[in-house]
């Protein structure tokens, strides 16, 4: 803490000719600082947290109204429908992931902090998942009941969403980072990210449908887990690069 004394007593011989290296802060302290801050903000804006969930609920309500309330048909539609709507709900909420930080200058501060941006992005994505992906997963069984999902489908639905929504948040963060500087980035974000969601959707909904048909779902869940591991490794790197570009531009 050489500098501490130097500022409080300016006459001390602290202006020595070497730049004094400060203690490099640990990665976790930076990760936790951002995680804690974003969690606090999310908790203070509880109302916004409910929006994706309400969207999820309302769109699922539209399905029987728009197609048929007949149980046999709903049963077939249920796994895919729940997955598609969970995907859309995640996409809608992603636009805000970096936007407020970009607009109030916090993002700029993040980029010029000595902390690796990878972990900062990871902290923000984790908060996003805890406030959208996890509630959607918890809600999903209720929607399964509404769409007459057979009993064997519930566990795979929750498991696949638990793994899959993590992938959705991570992959989506790349799109959110690329479009953060654009005034109307929301729709564009969906356009560029949705094709990348195809594998997650395929394996997520097929885990549920094959469990209903009596096949083991372990394979699909393992693939989803692999996707998640892959996304944790790579998506924050791409998002961090995209954030630098967006702030630079």
């Amino acid at each position: 803490m050489g500098l501490e004394s130097s500022v409080t007593s300016p006459t001390s011989a602290e202006g020595s000719l070497q730049a004094q290296p400060l203690i490099t802060p640990s990665i976790w302290s930076g990760f936790w600082a951002t995680f804690k801050r974003d969690m606090l903000i999310a908790v203070r804006h509880r109302g916004e947290m409910a929006n994706p969930i309400m969207f999820f609920l309302m769109v699922i309500t539209m399905v029987p109204l728009g197609i048929t309330p007949e149980k046999g048909i709903l049963q077939i539609l249920a796994p895919g429908m729940i997955w598609v709507v969970a995907l859309l709900a995640t996409l809608l909420s992603l636009d805000g992931l970096f936007r407020s930080d970009f607009e109030d200058g916090a993002l700029e501060q993040l980029l010029m902090s000595p902390q690796p941006l990878y972990f900062q992005v990871l902290a923000k994505v984790l908060v996003h998942w805890l406030t959208t992906g996890l509630p959607l997963t918890v809600m999903a069984p209720l929607l399964g009941v509404m769409l007459a999902l057979p009993a064997e489908g519930f566990l795979p639905l929750v498991c696949s969403l638990l793994l899959g929504t993590g992938c959705l948040s991570l992959i989506g963060s790349i799109g959110a980072a690329l479009t953060v500087a654009l005034r109307k980035g929301g729709l564009l974000l969906s356009l560029i990210i949705m094709p990348l969601y195809v594998p997650v959707l395929i394996f997520g909904s097929s885990a549920v449908s094959s469990a209903i048909e009596g096949f083991p779902m372990g394979g699909q869940l393992a693939v989803l887990g692999a996707f998640l591991a892959f996304a944790i490794m790579l998506a924050p790197i791409a998002a961090a690069g995209a954030l630098r570009i967006s702030v630079n531009g």
Partner: peptide, 9 residues
Amino acid sequence: TANRASAIL
């Protein structure tokens, strides 16, 4: 910005 962003995508 357009160049770099589309390259990342």
